[in-house]
């Protein structure tokens, strides 16, 4: 039961990551690329969580939490750089 759900989850997240990569390559604007990268980070967090369930190790959640924080900071840094020409003023 859970193996099937995990297989569906990995397949769905892989397909979602491929679609995000398409948007990241295709653009057309810089804001689209930032959005695609932000969505990729969220989907990778999902993959880490599913890998933690599949491997039975609760240590994956520290990695997921770290990636959630670093991904947000990265998105805001890209946006700030495009808006202000600088990140920390």
């Amino acid at each position: 039961m859970l193996e099937g759900a995990l297989a569906f989850g990995f397949a769905g997240l892989g397909l979602a990551l491929a679609m995000n990569l398409w948007r990241l390559v295709r653009g057309p604007g810089t804001a689209d690329r930032i959005l695609a990268l932000d969505t990729m980070v969220i989907n990778v967090i999902g993959v880490i969580v599913l890998a933690g369930i599949a491997g039975g190790s609760p240590a994956a959640f520290e990695a997921a939490l770290l990636l959630a924080m670093v991904g947000f900071v990265g998105t805001v840094a890209y946006a700030k750089f495009l808006l202000r020409g600088d990140i920390i003023e």
Binding site: A5, L6, F8, G46, L50
Partner: peptide, 12 residues
């Protein structure tokens, strides 16, 4: 898990 993967797929 299936619901979450479905929502992630819809979002992408």
């Amino acid at each position: 898990i299936v619901l979450g993967a479905g929502f992630a797929l819809v979002g992408s």
